[in-house]
């Protein structure tokens, strides 16, 4: 029994890390630009394809592939901000609809290029770590390790650099930030690019575990959405709390009840939280 608890705990943390990678970019785009980005999951998919191309077609080492994926995603985010989102600044509804359109374009683009069939991703590491009855496949440990390192780097960037501080200030008050010299035309593409890069790297990390196809973006988007609503739209600490919570709840429900019960429990929880705290766990009520 106790090993089952420990196993669920580890699986929950792995899921939570994935959800957090997805949710931070989603909440950052909303906090900084007031965009609900429904194309966010497609960048997870694109990241997975980038990793596939890098590792199997080009034969690059996995870490190099992930690094290139990040660079590519930041650039793509900057381009998308300029072409798709900039015309809808200060227009949340149209921006949201534009993001739905973007999601379709990206998904169908991938469908044309790669076809609908799931593609196998070669294992990056094999074997398991064993502590008594506790088993963690090395492939999962690798994804967890890299994911945590990337989250830490991003956290340090956000908390301790000039641009990170400016992004956080923008989430609080755009007008005042602009008065003190924060340039929106630089910070918007940077914020969106970094958020998209986190989604893409999540795709690259999960590709060896779950495979790659043009349709894999939908579930991570949904989870990111739940995490962000649960944590409070635009709140990064809220997203962190909600992501770990969601990962653990899913993992424990699958272990002790059943996998299909996990989604039911999750949504019941979200509805419950929103009834009690409509702004989310750490969200602020809109003025």
């Amino acid at each position: 029994m106790s090993f089952l608890i420990a196993q669920s705990l580890i699986n929950g943390v792995i899921l939570g890390t994935l959800y957090l990678l997805m949710a931070i970019g989603f909440t950052l785009a909303f906090g900084v630009m007031r965009i609900v980005n429904f194309a966010h999951g497609e960048f997870y998919m694109i990241g997975a394809f980038c990793a596939l191309i890098g590792v199997t077609w080009l034969g690059l080492p996995y870490p190099v592939t992930l690094a290139l994926t990040i660079v590519f995603a930041i650039l793509m985010g900057a381009v998308v901000e300029r072409l798709v989102f900039r015309p809808f600044r200060n227009d949340e509804l149209s921006g949201m609809i534009a993001s739905l359109g973007l999601a379709m374009i990206l998904q169908h683009g991938a469908l044309i290029l790669f076809g609908p069939d799931p593609q196998a991703f070669p294992a990056m590491v094999t074997g398991v770590f064993k502590w008594g009855a506790l088993i963690v496949p090395k492939s999962r440990a690798l994804a967890l390790g890299i994911g945590i390192v990337i989250l830490l780097i991003f956290y340090l960037f956000l908390m301790h650099t000039r641009h990170g501080r400016a992004l956080r200030a923008l989430v609080q008050d755009q007008e005042v930030a602009a008065v003190f010299g924060v340039r929106l035309e630089i910070m918007y593409p940077l914020g969106l690019g970094l958020g998209i890069a986190l989604a893409a790297v999540a795709g690259g990390l999960m590709a060896p575990l779950f495979g790659v196809s043009p349709f894999i973006g939908a579930t991570p988007l949904l989870k990111a959405f739940i995490v962000v609503i649960l944590g409070g739209l635009g709140s990064i600490p809220g997203a962190a709390l909600a992501a770990i919570l969601l990962g653990l709840i899913e993992s424990f429900t699958s272990s002790f009840i059943s996998a299909s019960a996990a989604d039911i429990v999750t949504f019941a929880l979200v509805i419950g939280v929103l009834l009690v705290r409509p702004a989310g766990l750490l969200g602020r009520a809109e003025a």
């Binding site: 501080r165 400016a166 200030a169 609080q172 005042v176 003190f180 010299g181 924060v182």
Partner: peptide, 18 residues
């Protein structure tokens, strides 16, 4: 209109952003 989720010192640092 302070940046409410930033610390006092970070607010001051944001003042000299430029």
């Amino acid at each position: 209109r302070l940046f409410g989720q930033l610390s006092v010192e970070e607010n001051l640092i944001m003042g000299s952003y430029a």
